[in-house]
Design a protein around this nucleic acid. Structure first.
Lengths: 125, 125
DNA sequence: GCAAAGAATGAAAATGACTTTCATATTTTG
DNA sequence: CAAAATATGAAAGTCATTTTCATTCTTTGC
């Protein structure tokens, strides 16, 4: 599917509209509605995670790994990295002792800033 | 200000619309626009943090503490708790070694589920 | 093959949160 | 008290996301 190729080839977090634009280069008549529906399905099936929003649009990341893992996502340019190990365990313990269960699903993409965006490079995007 | 009273008295995360509805009980002609403007200002000034969204609406928490701290927020009922210590330091270190800086501002409210919502109580709200 | 049933698609319309605009009221300041 | 600055609300506008609905691909059984 053109959308999947497009998603993989951008290598960073993307909004549905960006994904749609990229996919249209190989599949010109692909509709925006389908892009929304497809990303939603990816999310339900665990292939993608919502990673906050940029400029009013929700952005998503394709999951590199299955199972328990966390990404870090640059809020400026969308660059991502996979975190090693379970860096959130201490937070989870702390939450548990307050009577809460951290939601891994919602924490799969941690907002951050990558080095080049921090430098004011403007990064990519 | 009626909005501040309303915010404090709900004791959980709230959307702008909920805050507006609550505040209107004591100030019937208060407009929704003002509620949006006020919450935005709270956020700029550090009195409130955005805590994700529920049902398409952004939700906010009033900050109990100033400075470095993290809340945990139930995505179902909006209940909140303040986490002790710097439970996110390990995650920050892990991110740093990948070349990213975690954004505290965006992580001030960690999505979770409180005990009563996990039990299927439906919690509050 | 081939027709009926089901799923996927896209264009256009609808929804709804949030923002802007603009004219009015309220506060500040001298 | 008048002039300037600021806050307010109603209505209109914006824009991402969803729905609707008619059409087009896929199945599946025969």
């Amino acid at each position: 599917m053109a959308l999947l190729d497009a998603g993989r080839s951008m290598g960073r977090a993307f909004s549905v509209r960006e994904l749609h634009a990229a996919a249209q280069q190989s599949e010109p008549k692909l509709g925006l509605t389908t892009a929304y529906r497809t990303v939603e399905r990816w999310r339900e099936e665990g292939w993608a995670e919502e990673a906050g929003s940029r400029g009013g649009e929700a952005v998503y990341v394709l999951c590199a790994a299955q199972g328990h893992h966390h990404h870090v996502v640059c809020v400026d340019c969308g660059a991502t990295a996979l975190l090693e190990g379970c860096a959130l365990e201490p937070a989870r313990d702390s939450a548990r002792s307050a009577g809460f269960d951290l939601l891994d699903s919602a924490l799969a993409a941690l907002p951050a800033r990558c080095a080049s965006c921090a430098d004011g490079d403007g990064g990519g995007r």
